[in-house]
C-alpha cells in the first residue's frame, strides 16, 4: 500500500538537444487526481510519454516499487500503467465488447487466446456499466460518438486493471454534460487508483482536480491544491504572459 504511488525524480527528456522536460520531480499518491497543466510546450504530454515508455528519459520513474525506465511499453503496461492519447485510439473496426475484452486479456494464456470468447468477462460487464456503454456492447467502436470513444478508452484502462492512469486531455471535444459525467467518473475511479490528467480545460480542472502541478518550459512551476496554485503569482505570470496568444487558456 505504502509503495502504491508514482515517484518521479529528476526526470529529463531531450529531443536532439532540445530539453522538453527538465529535471522534473513529481510525486502522486494513490487516490490522488492530479492535473498537469501549463502552456503549450510545457512538457505535460512528454512526461506521460516518458512514464509509459514511449520516449527515452533520464532520472528515475518509479511506480509501486517498480522502476519503469528502460522497460518496453508493453512491459510497463503489464506493471499496471495505462494511458490514453489526445486523439482516441480505440480499435475502430472491432466492437465495444471486443475492445474491452482485448484490454482485459494481457495476462491470458495462449490456449485461452486461441479459443472463442464464451462469455462476457465479469470485469468487462462492470466496466460497461461504469462507462455507460452497456447498450452499445456490439456496436463497432468506430461509429461511437467522440465522447463515447473517450469513455471506452477509460473503460479499457479499467478492465486492464491499470493502477496508474495517465489521461491526455480526456474531455477535449466533449459537451458540457459529457465533461461533468467524465469528471465524476474520474473522481470515482481515482479513489482506488493513481490518476494523472493532462488538461487544457481550466473549468474542468477547477471542478475536479484534487491536486495540480503547473509546468512551464519543461520545469515544475508550482504544485498544490487548485486554490494554492491559483494564488501563486508565478503561475499568474506565466498564464498572463501567454494570454495574448491563448486567451481561453489564461483564465485561471
Amino acid at each position: 500500500m505504502a509503495t502504491d504511488y508514482l515517484e518521479i525524480t529528476d526526470l529529463t527528456v531531450s529531443f536532439d538537444g532540445f530539453i522538453a522536460v527538465d529535471t522534473v520531480n513529481l510525486t502522486v499518491l494513490k487516490s490522488d487526481l492530479r492535473f498537469l497543466i501549463g502552456p503549450n510546450g510545457a512538457g505535460k504530454t512528454t512526461i506521460i510519454d516518458a512514464i509509459s515508455g514511449l520516449v527515452p528519459s533520464t532520472g528515475s520513474i518509479e511506480f509501486a516499487g517498480n522502476h519503469l525506465q528502460g522497460k518496453k511499453v508493453h512491459k510497463i503496461a503489464r506493471l499496471g500503467v495505462g494511458r490514453t492519447f489526445q486523439t482516441s485510439t480505440v480499435f475502430e473496426d472491432l466492437t465495444v465488447l471486443q475492445n474491452l475484452d482485448i484490454a482485459a486479456g494481457a495476462h491470458r494464456t495462449p490456449l485461452t487466446l486461441l479459443r472463442r470468447r464464451s462469455a462476457v468477462p465479469e470485469e468487462v460487464t462492470a466496466a460497461l456499466e461504469t462507462i455507460g456503454l452497456t447498450g452499445q456492447i456490439d456496436t463497432l467502436a468506430g461509429v461511437l460518438s467522440h465522447g463515447q470513444k473517450q469513455w471506452l478508452e477509460i473503460g479499457m484502462l479499467l478492465v486492464q486493471n491499470a493502477q496508474l492512469l495517465l489521461l491526455d486531455e480526456p474531455v477535449a471535444g466533449m459537451s458540457h454534460d459529457e465533461r461533468n459525467a467524465t469528471g465524476e467518473l474520474l473522481q470515482r475511479i481515482s479513489t482506488e487508483r493513481t490518476v494523472v490528467i493532462v488538461e487544457h480545460d481550466m473549468d474542468f480542472m477547477r471542478s475536479f482536480a484534487k491536486s495540480v502541478t503547473v509546468l512551464a518550459a519543461g520545469k515544475v512551476l508550482s504544485e498544490g491544491s487548485v486554490a494554492e496554485v491559483q494564488a501563486d503569482p508565478r503561475v499568474q505570470a506565466v498564464y498572463l504572459g501567454t494570454a495574448a496568444a491563448a486567451p481561453t487558456g489564461a483564465e485561471i
Partner: peptide, 18 residues
Amino acid sequence: ELLRACQSSEERVRFLGY
C-alpha cells in the same frame, strides 16, 4: 480479435500490455 486490433492500431495494443 487481437490480431485485427494489431492491424488497427499496433501502438494501442502495446499500451494494453501485449
